[in-house]
């Protein structure tokens, strides 16, 4: 025990070898790449607009366009602006949809419940709105 203790003092901290640093560096790189590949939400390419229980339109995001939709409460104005979209004006009381602002990434959703209109951004593949495990 005493020998082990004095040995512990003699070797305060193990030294890393050149290959160890290489391994650590490569591992760190792998972790960063994994995060980039699997966690980065992809840019959206399409916009899906739903009105009531039907898909009103699926449009390209790569355009500048203003849409006027009529729901149960009146006219809603939606703006598409080269890769992003937002509710600009809505007749509802809460204005949640308008305050949500611009949507830019695939999987993002803005919903105006009172006027029954929703916007959903689509990427190349469908992403998940939630994950449980």
């Amino acid at each position: 025990m005493r020998a082990a203790l004095s040995a512990a003092r003699a070797h305060p901290f193990p030294r890393l070898l050149a290959g160890d640093w290489l391994t650590l560096l490569a591992s760190l790189l792998l972790v960063v790449l994994l995060f980039q590949a699997l966690w980065q939400s992809q840019g959206a390419s399409k916009l899906r607009i739903r009105q009531g229980d039907t898909v009103y339109a699926t449009l390209s995001l790569d355009q500048k366009r203003t849409l006027h939709l009529h729901g149960p409460q009146g006219e809603t104005e939606i703006v598409i602006d080269h890769g992003r979209v937002r509710f600009l004006r809505a007749p509802c009381n809460s204005q949640y949809c308008v305050h949500q602002g611009w949507l830019t990434r695939a999987g993002q959703v803005a919903i105006c419940l009172p006027n029954q209109i929703s916007l959903e951004l689509l990427g190349k593949r469908k992403s998940y709105d939630s994950l449980n495990y």
């Binding site: 193990p14 890393l16 290959g19 160890d20 290489l22 391994t23």
Partner: peptide, 18 residues
Amino acid sequence: RLPRRWFGPVSLSVLAAF
């Protein structure tokens, strides 16, 4: 099988963990 001169327990541990 990695050369022991350059690769110590830390390398083996990290590789095994992955």
